[in-house]
Amino acid sequence: MVNVLINVPKTAKRGDVVEIKALILHPMETGFRPGTNGRIIPRNIVERFSATWNGTEIFRMTMTPAIAANPFVSFFAVANESGTIGFRWSGDEGFLAEESVTITVA
């Protein structure tokens, strides 16, 4: 079950700088820790996160094992047009999560 929390203002004025926040449930297992059986727990992290505004990429980041579980990302964008903001997380073990929200720019 993919569990995501996104916070984007529902409306904005044209030219406004809006804050976009995204939180996702993920263990971000580093690949350096031994488990209870003494063996290394295989790495399982979100490797890439990106956001698009009406299909145009506005934010992209690469994540590393040093990032804590349930990564929270916050960034800013200039609101130019109404539409959909899409979010995409992908990573180890075929992990893929996609989510989108709409914003009205007046």
């Binding site: 995501v4 929390l5 926040k21 939180l23 449930l25 349930n70």
Partner: peptide, 12 residues
């Protein structure tokens, strides 16, 4: 509420 990771569990 959008930064508190506990809310992920509330949602679940």
């Amino acid at each position: 509420d959008s930064a508190n990771p506990g809310m992920l569990f509330v949602q679940a």
